[in-house]
Design a protein around this nucleic acid. Structure first.
Lengths: 213, 213
DNA sequence: AAATATAAAAATGTATACATTTTATAGCAT
DNA sequence: ATGCTATAAAATGTATACATTTTTATATTT
């Protein structure tokens, strides 16, 4: 999945969106992008369609796509959906989780703790891997894919609430608490911790976005 | 949105998937499709990517896409997610719903009642329009889009449980009951009816799929 | 006969060229 | 001036041609 030549283009455009290198709100021209990234319009079109489906681009009018402005309501919706769906994966996973699964999950948490100055992206990636490796145990592919998609869509927003210094430690405490609950087979508690975990992240984010407007 | 030349191709391939005109489980060859539909590989590629993102095609191994077999677990996941998310849209909509909104929704139900021999597709379309026109009132774009996407993904499965003669009338009763609850501003009841409505459809479907295996 | 290396074929990815559709502009009429 | 039509420009959609990768088949060696 990392060998396609267009993969590099995909990553680059995604970075440029994240770093506001592309104009917000106005339609992207295929030709302009083609010249900017020194490839033909064909891979540009592929990447635009892909990013549109991942929520990083939206249709602009009837034709073309644009970089949408960050939006508190969207963030609220995304985190709300995650709050309802991710506990379901924990529910399905709970009966199947092995010691080995718990160990692998804990490793990601340790990796976060041991590297205090990870970039926001690196931190976000480890954070997701922690959650995803537990969700995978559930073996509910369709549910997992929707949750993954929601997480992807959150990608543009991550980095605002995680700037908060307190956030990282609180977040880690909740992670460990959830692991402990799973170890003790207290599914209800694990789900509850997760709900609060997601809900808090969402609220912190939406408050930040509302203040910055 | 219906003017692109590829739109026709998209519709045709979708129909062919639904009607099992394309091989299940084996990778689709772009060239073969190109010859079959008498277009070049470029629009084929576009349509394949689009259908992949709508859940009608899945990646096959590392390369290419395939028509996945219908799967009870997938149906279960899809309906479960809808069961959790769609009531949220009703919740947001409930305070804002006008008499006009209710009237428009009722029109769709009447259209179903008045045409007893609609095709499965036509019935499904009217059914969705009923739900969607209420959800739109909520003005939660992101949540709405995810729910729409889930509904799209259910597309291949619709037509199995709706074959049941009882289903249509039971379904309509629930629709009218939900409208009535909304009219009386009983949000909790409306949500509850919707949950049951979706849950029953999902159960009927998964039971059918499990029996047919 | 099994395994591996190598060449041929097939399939996908990308560039260029062309066609079609949209959008902008200029000229004309009201 | 304002609005409308016709024309030009620009943007997207699609076909063909080429490049690269992947797969398959064949031949050779152990």
């Amino acid at each position: 999945m990392t060998k396609q030549p267009a993969q590099q283009l995909y990553m680059q455009i995604k970075l440029d969106i994240r770093d506001n290198k592309l104009p917000i709100g106005e339609p992207l021209k295929q030709q302009a992008l083609s010249e900017r990234y020194q490839v033909s319009r064909i891979p540009i079109r592929d990447v635009l369609q892909r990013l549109k489906n991942e929520g990083w681009l939206k249709v602009s009018g009837k034709r073309g796509v644009m970089v949408p402005a960050l939006n508190a309501t969207e963030a609220e919706d995304l985190y709300m959906m995650r709050m309802y769906l991710e506990p379901l994966l924990i529910e399905y996973a709970s009966g199947k989780i092995s010691q080995q699964d718990l160990g692998k999950a804990a490793d990601f948490l340790v990796a976060i703790d041991e590297n205090p100055n990870l970039s926001i992206q690196e931190h976000g990636e480890l954070n997701w891997q922690f959650h995803a490796c537990l969700y995978a145990v559930a073996e509910r592919q369709t549910l997992f894919e929707t949750v993954s998609s929601l997480h992807q869509q959150c990608g543009r927003y991550i980095g605002f609430h995680t700037k908060d210094l307190d956030y990282k430690s609180t977040s880690q405490e909740e992670h460990y608490a959830m692991l402990q609950a799973l170890r003790e087979r207290d599914t209800a508690l694990a789900k509850q911790i997760l709900r609060v975990h997601i809900s808090q992240a969402g609220e912190q984010l939406t408050q930040y976005l509302q203040n910055s407007n």
